[in-house]
Nucleic acid binder design. Structure first.
Length: 423
RNA sequence: GGUGGGAUGGGUGAGUGGCUGAAACCAACAGUUUGCUAAACUGUCGUACGGGUAACUGUACCGCGAGUUCGAAUCUCGCUCCCACCGCCA
């Protein structure tokens, strides 16, 4: 949620920023500011009434103590008309507040100055690439055939036991999965992130805190009996650790990581691009989360991008890094870098990581603050990124490393898997 | 699932209708003292919003939401959560 102070002080900046998302928010913001100024004057009026009532009550109390019944009842009469005004005004003020909140919730984050305008993924800027695209002297198999050939993943079994998008990993497929998780966590640990094992179900307040609720309700699995949501990413439990927290000073840098399964309903995304491991209802991911002083968030973003880059280099996968254009960025993000690995048999780039800075957009909802030098509360900046999401990494590893003799395991994983080739 | 008990500031905890935004203690922070540390003493010590350049000031908040009352942390009702014991279970 954008801060209303920002709309008051820099309306034009916000408007031009949102244009990068191809959103013309003029009407919304004008409406917010109109209601806001009316709200402020009404609020002042209301508080004056409260102040008068408080004073009268105090006097009545004193009169009663002194036994002056007459004077007290006199004053009681005065409160009646004030109370009438109060309840009318209070209704209006409440109405205005919820209207403002609803309008603020509807506005996405303002893209950072360096973000380009654009409508679709084609307009994302490629800022780096690494590795060579594999060439095969034989006809390469897509991963959904490879996993069948080598008994690594059983999609049909998943359909039987649960439904589409819930695969079984088995044998070396399961081991490889576990190896990747351990590798990612170890790398995060080396980079100074504290590891967590988090709850996989969260309450409504947490969903609101990180922005999944109320807008993206349909994307999460929900247990109505207990009113709990299955997490779509570890970002939710990890970031919500710091919901309603005020850090005591301005000298902090919080780095969290965690492996969790992620659950996504993916309502409405059927058909192409969902084959095999490309899009699942349940998948594994290691997430990194940072909470930073605003002055350090730019550096933090760079470090996170570098961290993800290193992971992919070590896995020997060809990849490219994109800075997303305004139109392709997530609702809460101010800047996002996507990492895509090349999947050789599908001949496609697959998104395996998304690293974003949210500035104060999340912390405003989370009420996550720190005390500055003047001991004033300021909103923190939050950032997060996948490091990494497993299924598409697995898809690319299998496809790119296939040989007539089997699938070769990257060197860095071999100590984790205990084998160097899948035959 | 059953039965009880509870929810007050960073923590412990007092407070059953008015001068209580909230005692006291602890913790924390600043200062005095000190060769250093400790101790002692002094002071500060919630959040949000509104008004004001500012000093400051008004209002709201004692789990959440309603109600009674001139006035509610305190009384009434509903809800949520937590704890303990029993049952069941990894």
């Amino acid at each position: 949620m954008l801060e209303i102070q920002r709309l008051r002080s820099d309306k034009d900046g916000v408007l031009t920023g949102l244009l990068k998302r191809n959103i013309d928010a003029t009407n919304t913001i004008n409406e917010i500011l109109e209601i806001d100024s009316l709200w402020r004057s009404s609020k002042t009026e209301l508080e004056t009434i409260f102040a008068e009532l408080n004073q009268l009550s105090r006097k009545i109390g004193v009169f009663f103590k002194e036994g002056k019944q007459e004077e007290a009842s006199q004053l009681k009469l005065e409160t009646i008309s004030l109370k009438g005004k109060e309840s009318d005004l209070k209704l209006k003020v409440d109405e205005m507040e919820s209207k403002i909140t609803a309008l603020l919730y509807s506005l996405p984050n303002v893209p950072h100055a360096d973000v380009a305008q654009g409508k679709s993924p084609e307009e994302n800027e490629q800022i780096a690439s690494y590795g060579e695209l594999p060439v095969f002297s034989f006809s390469a198999m897509p991963h959904w055939d490879l996993v069948k050939k080598y008994d690594l993943i059983d999609f049909e079994l998943g359909v039987k036991v649960t439904g589409a998008g819930f695969p079984f990993y088995r044998g070396k497929g399961a081991k490889l999965q576990r190896a990747l998780i351990s590798f990612f966590l170890d790398e995060a640990d080396k980079a100074g992130y504290e590891e967590f094992i988090t709850p996989l179900l969260v309450n409504e307040a947490s969903g609101i805190g990180t922005g999944q609720l109320p807008d993206k309700e349909g994307q999460m699995y929900h247990s109505p009996e207990d009113d709990l949501y299955l997490i779509p990413t570890a970002e939710v439990p990890l970031t919500n650790i710091y919901r309603d927290v005020i850090l005591p000073n301005e000298d902090f840098s919080i780095k969290l990581t965690g492996y969790t399964p992620c659950f996504r309903r993916e309502a409405g995304s059927y058909g192409k691009d969902v084959r095999g491991l490309n899009r699942l209802h349940q998948f594994d991911k290691v997430e990194i989360v940072r909470i930073e002083n605003p002055k350090n968030s730019e550096r933090a973003l760079k470090e996170m991008v570098e961290h993800v880059r290193e992971l992919l280099v070590k896995l020997e996968l060809p990849f490219r890094v994109l800075r997303l254009c305004g139109g392709d960025m997530g609702f809460a993000s101010a800047m996002t870098f996507d990492f895509e690995v090349y999947s050789a048999a599908q001949e496609k780039w697959l998104e395996v990581s998304s690293v974003s800075r949210f500035d104060t957009f999340q912390s405003n909802r989370l009420k996550l603050r720190y005390k500055d030098e003047q001991k004033k509360s300021q909103l923190c900046h939050t950032l997060n990124g996948s490091a990494l999401a497993l299924p598409r990494i697995l898809a690319a590893l299998l496809e790119n490393n296939q040989t007539p003799d089997g699938i070769k395991i990257p060197r860095v994983l071999q100590s984790y898997t205990g084998f160097s080739i899948i035959q």
